[in-house]
Write a protein that binds this DNA or RNA. Sequence first.
RNA 1: GGUUCAUUCGUCUAAUGGUUAGGACGCAAGAUUCUCAUUCUUGUAAUAGGGGUUCGAUUCCCCUAUGAACUACCA
Length: 482
Amino acid sequence: MSDKVRTRFAPSPTGYMHIGNLRTALYAYLYAKANGGDFILRIEDTDQNRFVEGATQVIYDTLKTAGMQHDEGPDIGGNYGPYIQSERKGMYREYAEELVRNGHAYYCFCQKDDPKEDSETPQAGYNRKCRNLTPEEVEANIAAGKPYVIRQRIPLEGSTGWNDLVFGEITVENSTLDDQILLKSDGMPTYNFANVIDDHLMGITHIIRGSEYLSSNPKYLLLYQAFGWEAPEYIHLPLICGKGPDGTVSKLSKRHGAVSFQALVEEGYLPSAIINYIALLGWNPGTEQEIFTMDELRAQFRTAGIHKSPAIFDYQKLNWVNGEHMKMLDPEYFRKAAFPYAGIEGTPLADKWEHIASLMQPRIQKYSEIPQQIAFLSQMPSYDKELFLNKKNKSTFETSAEYIRMALGIIPCIGEWTVDALNEAFSALAESHELKLGRLMWPVRIAVSGLMITPGSATDIMYLIGREESVARLEAGLAKVL
RNA sequence: GGUUCAUUCGUCUAAUGGUUAGGACGCAAGAUUCUCAUUCUUGUAAUAGGGGUUCGAUUCCCCUAUGAACUACCA
């Protein structure tokens, strides 16, 4: 019997990966890897009404894209299968009935719409009407074909607690717990039950999950006790919240923006940046490092740095992290990955993509910014002649006209139309007129771009739009300032 | 309502029974660059409130306030 760490990620197949779930998965993965353990994937699909086609594939894809390779799971197998709860259906009833036999659970014949509240048991949701049925009554009901569920018989007295690796000692009075359903009338276990059984059967040593389970954990612990099993360690994670436009804070949801991994990726966020960012939501490495690769996270992750208080998901900071990861990207990789976002396939600009990409990489935080940044290259914007005026470069309409004429004069002399040639020609031009390059280029840049702010310099732009278009734009600019 | 948890700049966070309460994002200013971005400098802004304990508390304790989660035959 080894005491190897085993953690699990147990999502239900909903068709998308919520960022909160992804962080739970990440911490479970990192904890396992930081401790030389295994990371197990289990699909929790006990709710037959919520079946979504292709949803498990989304889970596999996400884990793969995010760089979290599981060691056991439905798709790769393992010694503790099956790893899909619906395929384990048969085993839960047996365990539920074991609890009935030893007095820790009971049959309940109440219907869903029966009144549940009872003034005598104000804390517990269910009124425990069937808790003390005699064996004869139970048998009669079953014989009559009445549908039933199996409920957990929570002790009426005493308390249950544990020492959470993040939250510390937590103890709850048993009297505040309700007799939760373990086995539904369709024979399927509830999450609350299946989860405990599976975690035990799969030898999970550390349960890592969101703090929303904090309040139901005592009921799980009572189940472990009822079976006489040893309970695992618990690591509850602080919630990830979002802030609404009105300033209210709540569990991160769609109203706060994109919350699924796929949606963020589609928006142009890099998986490595998303992972980096969410790793730091609720955990700090003990150093001032902020930019991490997955390898670094694996090496440095410790539970000691996990927080208790909820964190607000900040898209602004994610943008920054993403920008940092953008800059870290190998230029060649960037060119390939960013190209589809540019929307220039089949246009003349596609041939100059390498140069465009080199301008974009240090400048963007998200791929999705590219089209808007380069739109002026293919479509000359209409602009206000006031743009030619610039105090710092002492640019006036008169100087603009003069410099644009100079530019028009030199362009025919440029041989091969390259950025280097352009830079050389304009530097020489400025020098020969004893001008600061900035003064000369200001009106040129405005004329060829029509924009106050441009990605890249005037020479970059002229190179990209070509000689002919450059001349046309310069002439139009000249007409404007005259 | 009940139960549980939380509270340091706007946000993510660091730190200690004694500090000018540190870093990052954002924002602002400056330098550099033919604009922008990058890079570099600088600035901005926080210990929820009230009681204790203590020579001294942001740090330990209590109360209050505020917020959150849970309270399904969902997971």
